[in-house]
């Protein structure tokens, strides 16, 4: 379970002054369901995900992830989550296996490290390139190792921040199948994207974020009905107040 309460983040730029990246955001993601954070680039999705994963701290508000407060118990939160993004990278001079061993040790899996590596290797089909340097892997292979790294400790909560960015259709398909499998395993999944087709296929619940604020919550069908739009894309444009030729 992920519960977000009035979460805000303000950055201070010496030239531009205060920038509100996330402005009093609140939502709830439940086990066995996929919650989609839908918004354009710069809407505040990644900042929200980063606060939920405790790599940056909120300016105000808080959230509970797997029952732990992100401000008071950040280490517990990080133990309970897996984070996959299109921009997270691997160590090029380590092999895929060494990367998994490294993160396994950081997650304190010393006793059952081998079993954990075997599990994710089987789950993501890493056998063929497990002993290759990460620098030598294809983009799709790297993304699979990245996912394996994120689930090495079998977390109950999964965050996916635009995980298909830069991937081809086949690799993107594999990622979406993996996200579905997480839901089927009963994990809580928070998935951020700006691609409507991915939201329609994967998300049980949708939170539309625009300029740091929540514009709407509900299912895809509910949003289309609410805005009287035939497609999610049109519903989204209506919700964020888009007007033709205005931008």
């Amino acid at each position: 379970m992920v519960q977000v309460f009035d979460l805000s983040k303000t950055f201070v730029d010496p030239k531009r002054g205060e920038i509100k990246a996330v402005d009093h955001v609140g939502f709830e993601a439940k086990p066995g369901r996929i919650l989609g954070l839908l918004g354009v680039n710069g809407a505040g999705k990644t900042t929200t995900m980063r606060m939920l994963s405790t790599v940056i701290s909120p300016t105000s508000g808080t959230a509970r992830v797997a029952g732990y407060d992100i401000v008071d118990e950040p280490a517990r939160v990080r133990e309970s989550i897996g984070f996959v993004s299109g921009s997270t990278a691997l160590y090029g001079r380590l092999t895929a296996k060494e990367c998994l061993e490294y993160f396994g040790q950081l997650y304190g899996l010393d006793g059952n490290l081998k079993a954990s590596i075997d599990r994710v290797t089987e789950q993501l089909g890493l056998h063929d390139f497990l002993n290759q340097l990460c620098d030598k892997l294809s983009t799709g292979q790297k993304q699979r190792v990245s996912i394996a790294r994120a689930i090495i400790h079998d977390p109950p909560i999964m965050f996916f921040d635009e995980p298909t960015a830069g991937l081809d259709v086949l690799a993107g398909q594999a990622i979406m199948e993996f996200i579905e499998s997480c839901r089927n395993q009963g994990k809580t999944v928070v998935f951020s994207t700006h691609i409507m087709s991915e939201v329609e296929r994967l998300c049980d619940d949708v939170v539309v974020i625009h300029e740091g604020r929540v514009c709407a919550t509900g299912s895809s069908a509910e949003m289309k009905a609410q805005t009287n739009s035939p497609t999610l894309e049109q519903a989204f444009l209506t919700l964020v107040g888009y007007q033709r030729g205005a931008q």
Binding site: V55, R78, E79, S87, T88, A89, F103, L106, Y107
Partner: peptide
């Protein structure tokens, strides 16, 4: 620059 620092900071290590 490569994005590996974020991955590292996501682990429970202080």
């Amino acid at each position: 620059e490569r994005g590996t620092l974020e991955t590292l900071l996501l682990s429970p290590v202080k």
